[in-house]
């Protein structure tokens, strides 16, 4: 790892430590030891989440040794976006070709997924031809009912929707990935149609692909947690921010970027809901319901292996942590001096 990268990570750790210590800058009003210990725990969690540069370097080296030419998943998503950017067209046929091409590139590392994606695209294509000239979303139900993997549970749900028994509700969760798969393909299609909103549309495409991957690989909740900051980084990349800078961004900077986009605001909202176990918000959407069942089944909030990732999510949920402000003529200055000398002394 290069010195400058290490320096940047240490710098981030420094900012986080300052934020924690700044909370009580008046030595006359010392907080209880229990609170300080809690903050030490928070610092610990924050530091352990700062492993992005090492992750990037590890992947690079593993790829060299194994001669795997594929970039990381996030980079594959970006690659897909670039293909889509080139191929945005008002022609439906062209759009399908580009979606297919992008999916091929995104999922070429997993033939099974590729097969399912292409199969779904064919079905979607068939149905849009049948329902020519009509908004696709209206035909979600038709597509589900005629879909080759016809799902009895979903039909059962539709027929007894008013009753909403507990058992049925549990079973319904199982059908969510299936429904979302079609929904995501529709949103990909819709975003391609929005020629005048290419930028916004392509971010939706990223989210669509990400959701698709999550649902299809049946990834546990930790992947969802990992994905939220990564998706905000991909928004940053779309804004032309360089890779190195994206990797080093503080959560405060990430949230500032996210806030400029509708989809980014949603990601911050989801982060908040996950951290605060806000079932009401999480389960507002179908994807959320699936997410909620995932989080519950994986014992998410209690499992310590999730701590570093939760910490990043926590910072996003808090809408980023502002870099510490240095106050002059204050006892706190001395602490900053001490911190700087400790951090850089070795």
């Amino acid at each position: 790892m290069r010195e400058s990268q290490t320096g940047n990570i240490i710098e981030s750790a420094e900012i986080k430590a300052l934020q924690e210590i700044e909370k009580v800058s008046d030595p006359g009003k010392m907080e209880p030891i229990s609170q300080i210990i809690n903050r030490i725990k928070k610092i610990n969690k924050s530091i352990r989440g700062l492993d992005l540069v090492i992750e990037s370097k590890t992947f690079q080296e593993l790829a060299n040794v194994t001669r795997v030419k594929l970039p990381r998943l996030n980079d594959r998503l970006i690659f897909g976006i670039k293909i889509l950017q080139k191929g945005v067209s008002e022609s439906r046929e062209d759009s399908y070709q580009y979606i297919s091409k992008a999916c091929n590139k995104l999922f070429e590392w997993d033939q099974n997924i590729l097969f399912v994606v292409n199969k779904n695209l064919k079905d979607l294509k068939r149905y849009t031809k049948i329902k020519k000239g009509t908004e696709l979303k209206k035909y979600t139900k038709d597509m589900i009912n005629n879909y080759p993997f016809k799902n009895d549970l979903y039909e059962q749900y539709l027929s007894t929707q008013k009753e909403k028994t507990k058992d049925l509700k549990t079973n319904f969760y199982l059908t969510i990935p299936f429904i979302k798969e079609i929904g995501d393909l529709i949103s990909i299609y819709d975003s391609l149609k929005t020629v005048n909103k290419i930028e916004e549309g392509n971010i939706d495409v990223t989210i669509g692909f990400a959701k698709y991957t999550l649902n299809h690989l049946n990834l546990p909740s930790i992947y969802i947690v990992d994905l939220i900051p990564s998706l905000i980084r991909s928004i940053a990349r779309n804004q032309g921010i360089q890779e190195n800078k994206c990797l080093r961004m503080s959560t405060y900077e990430l949230v500032q970027i996210a806030k400029n986009f509708k989809v980014g605001k949603t990601l911050v909202e989801i982060s908040k809901a996950i951290i605060h176990e806000d079932k009401k918000i999480i389960t507002r959407s179908r994807t959320g319901k699936y997410l909620w069942s995932e989080l519950k089944s994986k014992n998410f909030w209690e499992d310590t292996t999730y701590l570093p990732k939760i910490s990043m999510l926590q910072n996003i949920a808090n809408e980023g942590e502002k870099p510490a402000k240095i106050k002059s003529n204050n006892q706190f200055d001395k602490h900053i001096g001490k911190l700087a000398s400790i951090i850089y002394s070795n």
Binding site: I36, I43, N44, I47, D51, K338, N346
Partner: peptide, 21 residues
């Protein structure tokens, strides 16, 4: 590298907290 980074940072911050309080 990761463990080194984690322990170094945590150790430094622990020292800071001890000096501050």
């Amino acid at each position: 590298e990761l463990v080194n980074f984690e322990l170094t940072s945590i150790n430094k911050i622990q020292q800071l907290i001890l000096k501050t309080y």
